[in-house]
């Protein structure tokens, strides 16, 4: 049982930097998804892990799926599907731009930074929406890094990222949640993962991950069980050597070992006992303010 993985190194644009410098137009496909460029700036990002432009609009009941498919089919060599949705009265210009950007950002979080290998570039390839809005690669990488930092602050609860979301009801106190958390808990049926809930609701996969981790930290979502299938809760996270002052070394002139702080062990975070739960929540609050 190791400590959680350290945060990734500072992001580097790599291949995207080169394509931006050359002001290319086309599609760069990586392992996680696809980045569309126009004259070296990003105008769309697709990723199966994040609800796309069309999923967001259909899940909200804003535009019928059939209409979006027609707009995609009608897009030719110079795609302009976004504009056709506006001129057809299906979306306002502002809605198009905001939905486009929300989808782009959410996909970029899972696609960027691209690995140095395993990408393929198709010059001239286009996305049916057309260039609704273009973003410089540097700005997009900075935005993605800020999102990454928000999620990393809750990395001790990363085990919930890929597991079915199971709501927990700790005893003994009322729990106040935000609107986002209430909606997430309402769809935590013990079968869907955070990504599947995001797709079902057409909502940000990034925010769904973040809120699932925060709910787990508050004890309102269960941490997944370990590989043996045994519940891993019921105890405080184990102390690590060096995390305490050794009483045997308090003699004259003996130097006290320095107390050091250790990351919590996520596998031990399930805490059905109210007292333990309270301690874990206290620590979470303290860590938030570090």
């Amino acid at each position: 049982m190791g400590l959680p993985a350290p945060p990734p190194p500072p992001e580097s644009a790599g291949v995207l930097d080169r394509l931006a410098a050359d002001r290319v137009t086309g599609a760069l496909r990586g392992p996680g998804g696809c980045v569309y460029l126009l004259n070296g700036a990003v105008y769309f990002v697709e990723c199966s892990a994040a609800p796309g432009f069309d999923v967001r609009l259909t899940a909200a009941g804003r535009v019928p799926a059939r209409r979006l498919q027609e707009a995609a089919d009608a897009a030719g060599a110079r795609p302009d599907g976004g504009r056709s949705l506006v001129s057809g009265g299906w979306l306002t210009r502002g809605e198009l731009e905001i939905c486009h950007l929300a989808a782009l950002l959410d996909a970029a979080f899972f696609v960027l930074p691209l690995p140095p290998d395993g990408t393929s570039f198709t010059p001239g390839a286009t996305h049916w929406l057309g260039p609704v809005h273009r973003i410089g690669i540097d700005a997009l990488l900075r935005a993605t890094a800020r999102r990454r930092a928000l999620l990393d602050a809750w990395h001790s609860w990363a085990a919930v990222d890929t597991a079915p979301v199971v709501a927990a009801r700790p005893r003994g106190r009322d729990h106040v949640t935000t609107w986002w958390q209430r909606r997430l808990l309402a769809h935590a049926d013990g079968r869907r993962t955070p990504q599947e809930i995001a797709r079902l609701l057409g909502q940000s996969a990034f925010l769904t991950l973040l809120e699932t981790r925060r709910l787990a930290a508050a004890g309102l979502v269960q941490m997944p069980r370990d590989r043996t299938g045994e519940p891993s809760g019921g105890a405080l996270p184990r102390r690590h050597p060096g995390a305490h002052l050794d009483e045997r070394t308090t003699g004259d002139g003996a130097e006290r070992p320095t107390a050091s702080w250790h990351l919590p062990v996520p596998e031990l975070e399930t805490t059905p006992e109210p007292d333990v739960d309270l301690l874990v929540r206290l620590r979470t609050a303290l860590e938030e303010n570090l």
């Binding site: 609800p51 967001r56 804003r62 929300a102």
Partner: peptide, 10 residues
């Protein structure tokens, strides 16, 4: 805050 019919955070 800009309130959209679909999910967004602007």
């Amino acid at each position: 805050f800009v309130h959209t019919a679909f999910d967004s955070q602007t």
